[in-house]
């Protein structure tokens, strides 16, 4: 909780970045190959934009709450 410790928001950022990379990566693969998953609204390419949203949030949290910088 204190500045010298890793805040929970940083852990959340790490997890969101990891998930964002994996899901966006899969979405781009789908987009590139045209092999869409057998689910409803697959043409909406949810993995691309939802993965990118997770990635952006994760980067924000990692940057804002990186160890050594964060306040409570």
């Amino acid at each position: 909780m204190h500045g010298s410790k890793i805040p929970i928001w940083f852990f959340i950022g790490v997890l969101l970045v990891t998930y964002g990379l994996l899901i966006t990566g899969y979405g781009i693969y789908e987009l590139a190959t045209g092999q869409l998953a057998d689910v409803a609204l697959s043409q909406a390419h949810a993995p691309v934009w939802w993965g990118a949203t997770l990635l952006a949030l994760g980067i924000f949290y990692m940057a804002k709450f990186r160890p050594g910088k964060a306040k409570k």
Binding site: Y19, L22, I23, E30, D38, V39, A46, P47, W50
Partner: peptide, 12 residues
């Protein structure tokens, strides 16, 4: 979830 979420998103 199964209806809309493909690989990766279903895991999430």
């Amino acid at each position: 979830m199964v209806r809309y979420l493909g690989p990766g998103l279903l895991g999430l």
